[in-house]
Design a protein around this nucleic acid. Structure first.
Ligand SMILES: [Mn+2]
Ligand SMILES: [Mn+2]
Ligand SMILES: [Zn+2]
Ligand SMILES: [Zn+2]
Lengths: 152, 152
DNA sequence: TCGCAAAGGATAATAATTATTAAATGCTTC
DNA sequence: GAAGCATTTAATAATTATTATCCTTTGCGA
């Protein structure tokens, strides 16, 4: 029972300037009670058991609202479409969270990743990929302007 | 002029047991000549200038053929749909490339990432995200069976 | 060259996401 | 607590990304 009381949720919403709705609370509770990194579809399947009339679009909108408020995060900033990597030697990436641009960083430019404790037993590691997340020069320049203009 | 001669391409295909077709060569050349990490749509736009009659499906099929042969790579193994991360404190991920499962690794379980040289000027780093890519225990068990069964 | 498996083209189908719009609801003010 | 207005929801259409289908064409070994 990882339930969040209505008053706690109300407080959370107020802190982020969000209206408190029943749907948002149910979606929030579904998210906090699900293991791993759920997809909108998975959230929808769970939520509709409590609120059968809910719409998938409402789930998407609530999730984006939570993401925009920083209440939750997103696993991959560049999940929109397949991106081919012509560089098949191990390397890392510089990723702009604003415009989604991806730039190669040579593996030798980063110290090898060191683990402090062992991984779950039986996991076979193939490689370590470092994503350096941030804002590229071009995006930070025009940061006051329109913040969602994308240039690839 | 990063052009690849037809004989070089023919050799590459032979090495991977692929039939040599004009479309594949044009798609391959487009990929090798494009900067960054192109999407299928971008490849299609470029390729159709040379072969106007080409189909988008052919581009997708050729790209998958190249990916399956290991001639090129894919930036994100989990690009299929949005995945919410309830953990908004900085942390890392263990990713199974077989079943696409994503498991949190605490930031403190990995030594801080160290750069050996400076990044492109003006890039504002927000955080470093390490992806530990490999095969999870469950997938490596049944590795002889059906290799594309997914369990989340 | 012949024959066939493999690949391409056109297009339908599916999956993921976003847009639209009218009705319902939350929130502020009285 | 009701009124009014802005926000949110539900239903559904539209988009976008990707895959499947099906028939035609082509590459390649015999
Ligand atoms: Mn790369
Ligand atoms: Mn996570
Ligand atoms: Zn940028
Ligand atoms: Zn797995």
């Amino acid at each position: 029972m990882t339930g969040v009381s209505i008053s706690q949720f109300r407080e959370l919403c107020q802190r982020h300037g969000l209206a408190v709705t029943h749907q948002r609370q149910v979606i929030f509770e579904a998210l906090t009670s699900m293991p791993g990194h759920p997809s909108p579809e998975e959230v929808f399947e769970r939520v509709r058991k409590k609120v059968p009339a809910i719409s998938l679009a409402t789930v998407y909108k609530a999730i984006h609202t939570f993401l925009d408020s920083g209440i939750f995060g997103e696993v991959s900033v560049h999940h929109g479409s397949l991106r081919v990597d012509r560089n098949i030697s191990p390397h890392h990436h510089l990723v702009c969270t604003r415009c989604k641009s991806i730039t190669d960083i040579e593996e030798s430019d980063v110290e090898p990743v060191q683990l402090r404790r062992s991984l779950p037993a039986g996991f076979q590691v193939h490689r370590y990929a470092v994503e350096i997340l941030g804002v590229c020069p071009r995006c930070s320049e025009q940061s006051q302007g329109n913040p969602d203009k994308q240039h690839y």
